[in-house]
Amino acid sequence: MSKIHVKTRINGEAAEFLCEPDETLLEALRDRLHLTGTKEGCGSGDCGACSVTVNGRLVASCLMLAAEAEGAEIGTIEGLAKGAELDVLQRKFVEHAALQCGICTPGFLVASKALLEKNPDPTEEEVRYWLAGNLCRCTGYDKIIRAVLDAAAEMRRA
């Protein structure tokens, strides 16, 4: 079994790696590139902890082969802040205490970012349905939803 050479851009920078043909993008990100901010909660697309964007589209990186990333633009949690400056969503998650254990937080942030780029003024119901594929077991979602809505409001004001 020979490895596949994949060239991508991750968070705006060129990145390349070798992977097995059956390796997922999640495994490549975590184990090859050591970008461990993207988490594995289930490996079957049911929890959203591994959310990343591929060419701007939100996907579960556990349900995509690493080889498919050839030529793609990948966005992960590590690319959300601009250096030391947090993204509005990150700031609002901290402000609203929208995390407890924090394991689901990168996935929620990446998914919420994708939502607000597509829909800058979502209703509470739209936020809840968009994020239904991101499981959180600590918060009951209450403070997460408030944080996303508040981030959206601030982004609209900006």
């Binding site: 697309g45 959203g48 591929v54 939100l58 579960a60 995509m64």
Partner: peptide, 9 residues
């Protein structure tokens, strides 16, 4: 079909 993430694929 599936979540927003699954919708992407």
């Amino acid at each position: 079909i599936g979540s927003t993430q699954v919708q992407g694929r």
